[in-house]
Design a protein around this nucleic acid. Structure first.
Lengths: 260, 260
DNA sequence: CCATCTTTGTGCACGCGTTCACAAAGACAT
DNA sequence: ATGTCTTTGTGAACGCGTGCACAAAGATGG
């Protein structure tokens, strides 16, 4: 799900559901591991286990790509690796630019997973003049003024934004204007982009917050005694009127600071 | 979606849909920004725009939490900030441990978004003795042998794994055995965990691959001439029999290297 | 107190994704 | 060649999430 898009164009591609596309890299990784161990064929059951999904789901996913399996035997590992790679567009070379070489950006630049599988970091870009020229991941950081030139000369269509939140939209606009049509956003902001541009968002703190939600559920299954909750950071009020509506029965400790 | 779980228990929590939970942090961020600008109330339309979602969806999401709005006016910003924070469990203090202080781990430790909103990095842990004692983000790295002690003494229930793929499952097992019940996994591996443990996965290269898929679609809408695809990394064969089944009509360049 | 206007909360329908369950397809042995 | 056994590919049912559209609720003004 490309968070950051206001309306979902569904992008039902060429009949391949978005949910399936999101799982193809998972299958590809599992298949690559099998390939390295020279395993010739694999059943949907085995591969599904390796990828952490349901076997029926896996078969249906593959059915969107075509009939690449052999009944009674399974799937040919090498063949499937190539088919999925091709479907994902990984048989091409994808030059990417990374903007914002702070802690996170530098780590991403060094991250091996980025360079693998057809992705090639074409340039690292930052707005801080003191960063410019400094080598990060064996590559000199370039100044943001050259962004358009870099994108154009390298034929870059994928950009990674790892700037502070405040600069993200501005950087995004420049990338899009320069011709970038896919953006991976690490800044904690909602980017607005024109139609035809894909944005995917990776937000570390959101992931933690979702975990905290489930964690809280596990911890305080019983209502009434809310364990040891820290005082709410907002002003509290004694009025409990708001709780009267009571859609949620088991919710003993509603602080109720209803606005006037 | 907690990738990494084999079967989905759906975790339909207390009636709050998982999709809604995943959006609550988004709303919270937008609301916090409004709060800092001292905006007293906000309509579902405005807030939805700020969070990048549909207004009807936002209202439905909030309806799961209760009736916190005022018709004809909108939502009280401060009140809603507190309600969502409480629902997400962010009014508590969540000590977390981070295992694997390489490039990515160090960047995460320095990442401001982690420390904000109730999350507190209780310890940084690494298996490399040369890292131990070295300060990262103003905090000494501790040796992995003390993992169980650290988790226990700090009451840690959330762990972040930023190790290489090979070490991830092992680290995961130790975390779970020590009492951690929520894991945020940055290693490119499928973790298997017992029931009751939540795993969320952040995979940088997968996100890129999904972008590449859509990018490829945008670039080569026409079939037949596959632009300038690099030669397939697997052995090719002249046999074209496999394509005969032909579920997908418009797919001109099927390489067809069917196994024997 | 009544009328009007704004905005919420939600019933409903629709579409996507998941899962089940099974027929068809092929491998393999005899 | 025939039968058995394994595994795929998929039709169909189900459930969740989304978005529309509107009635109910409350604010505001006269």
């Amino acid at each position: 799900m490309a968070t950051g898009r206001t309306h979902r164009p569904a992008t039902r591609s060429r009949g391949i559901p978005e949910a399936t596309v999101a799982r193809l890299p998972l299958y590809l990784r599992a298949l690559t591991a099998l390939s390295e161990r020279s395993v010739p064929t694999v059943s949907s059951e085995e591969l599904a286990a390796a990828a952490g999904v349901n076997s029926a789901k896996l078969r249906k996913d593959f059915s969107y790509l075509g009939s690449y399996g052999t009944r009674g035997v399974g799937y040919d590992v090498e063949y499937l690796v190539y088919q999925i790679s091709r479907e994902l567009g990984l048989t091409q070379d994808w030059p990417i630019v990374m903007v914002g070489i702070g802690n996170l950006g530098a780590a991403l630049a060094n991250y091996g997973g980025f360079a693998s599988r057809g992705f090639r970091v074409a340039a690292l870009i930052d707005a801080d003049p003191s960063m410019v020229g400094r080598p990060v991941a064996g590559m000199p950081v370039q100044f943001i003024d050259d962004l358009e030139k870099i994108v154009d000369e390298n034929g870059v269509s994928i950009g990674v934004i790892a700037t502070p939140a405040g600069a993200a939209q501005q950087v995004c606009d420049r990338l899009v204007a320069a011709g970038v049509t896919s953006i991976l956003n690490f800044a904690p902001t909602v980017l607005s982009v024109p139609d035809g541009v894909d944005v995917r968002k990776v937000d570390l703190s959101i992931e933690l917050q979702i975990l905290a939600f489930h964690e809280q559920r596990k911890a305080g299954e019983e209502p009434g005694a809310g364990a040891e909750a820290v005082l709410p950071p907002v002003v509290r009020d004694a009025g409990a009127a708001a709780a009267a509506e009571g859609r949620k029965g088991p919710d003993g400790d509603m602080p109720a600071v209803m606005p006037a």
